[in-house]
């Protein structure tokens, strides 16, 4: 059962990566990245899950506990994701301030034009 669940999380990662490529809006790209992050964390937690697992808290060794290692690893990565997301939102805001659009194609066009202008002068 957990095999199926972790397979679906891979599917969610796939959806997120497709959004990352196909969406032209910068904020939509960031949202897709967020989906990829969350789905990766889900995969890490689900791939070690056995039905009947309990949270690895408590002194009793006899109980069937969940694997604590991936949980501890993804716990730190959630916070990192948040910091990276804030930083990339800041860069997006810088771009919007400069080019007044979120459309990546337009921003690329403007940047190219700027380079050409610099080359001419």
């Amino acid at each position: 059962m957990s095999d199926m669940a972790s397979a679906i999380t891979i599917l969610i990662v796939c959806v997120g990566v497709l959004g990352l490529i196909l969406k032209r809006n910068l904020l939509m790209k960031l949202l897709s990245l967020n989906i990829v992050n969350t789905a990766t964390i889900l995969f890490f937690v689900l791939v070690v899950y056995r039905p009947g697992d309990r949270a690895p808290i408590g002194p009793d060794i006899g109980v069937q506990f969940a694997d604590p290692l991936p949980q501890a690893l993804v716990l730190t990565s959630i916070v990192i994701n948040f910091g990276v997301l804030a930083l990339s939102l800041l860069f997006t805001m810088v771009l919007v301030k400069r080019y007044h659009t979120l459309d990546l194609r337009k921003i690329e066009k403007f940047v190219k034009e700027e380079y050409q202008e610099e080359g001419q002068s």
């Binding site: 949980q71 716990l75 959630i78």
Partner: peptide, 11 residues
């Protein structure tokens, strides 16, 4: 549900 309450609270 899958026994990771630490991750759940942080998320």
């Amino acid at each position: 549900v899958v026994g990771a309450p630490d991750v759940a609270v942080t998320e």
